[in-house]
């Protein structure tokens, strides 16, 4: 029995290691991986895919509705991947971060550079400068010079007026609900 079984296993092993079979299995694996990857890649383009992760979910929710700037981006047809993980490398990196546990919950706030914001908002900036000339001050043209957008504008939480660290300007009270307005008059 023993000898017979051993022999069979050996034969099977040998069959498995035959180049043709091995190649066939590998090819099948590659196809499966490619299809799965493709499906995953397609699926990941949908914001709802991001929400399947419970850590990402609250950020997805702030995009899907509510008063925050993320929701305003959603209204304008801007999806998660339009800002986050634009490149395949970044996507893979995020996967690695997830697998290795290299993340914090809640997630660390990302600081997008002015260039990143302006890649869509290029023409809006000059308009913003003109629109926020409140007389007593202009947050887009102040003594601080050119400062990063994200110091005030937050996507997934309430925006904060950077000026409010030192100044009480009367225009704070006219800001919409995407802003922390309790700062005004404090």
């Amino acid at each position: 029995m023993e000898a017979h079984n051993g022999q069979t296993n050996e034969v099977r092993k040998k069959a498995f290691f035959r180049p043709k079979v091995l190649l066939g299995v590998l090819a099948a694996l590659v196809v499966v991986a490619a299809v799965a990857g493709g499906v995953l890649f397609q699926a990941s383009k949908k914001p709802s895919f991001c929400a399947t992760c419970h850590i990402i979910e609250p950020y997805y929710n702030s995009w899907k509705g509510g008063d925050l700037l993320a929701a305003k981006h959603a209204e304008a047809g801007v999806d998660c991947l339009d800002c986050h993980h634009k490149s395949t490398v970044a996507k893979i990196g995020e996967g690695i971060n997830y697998l290795t546990g290299n993340y914090e919950n809640p997630l660390k706030e990302r600081d997008f550079s002015m260039e990143e914001c302006l890649s869509c908002h290029k023409d809006d900036f000059a308009e913003a400068v003109a629109a926020t000339d409140f007389g007593e001050s202009n947050p887009h043209d102040s003594h601080l010079g050119e400062i990063e957008c994200h110091l005030c504008h937050k996507m997934h939480r309430q925006s904060e007026v950077y000026c409010a660290q030192c100044h009480d300007f009367s225009w704070y009270k006219d800001l919409d609900k995407s802003w922390k307005t309790e700062l005004a008059g404090s």
Partner: peptide, 10 residues
């Protein structure tokens, strides 16, 4: 700090 200038800018 996230902006330059320290106290000098204010």
């Amino acid at each position: 700090m996230p902006t330059p200038g320290g106290n000098s800018i204010i």
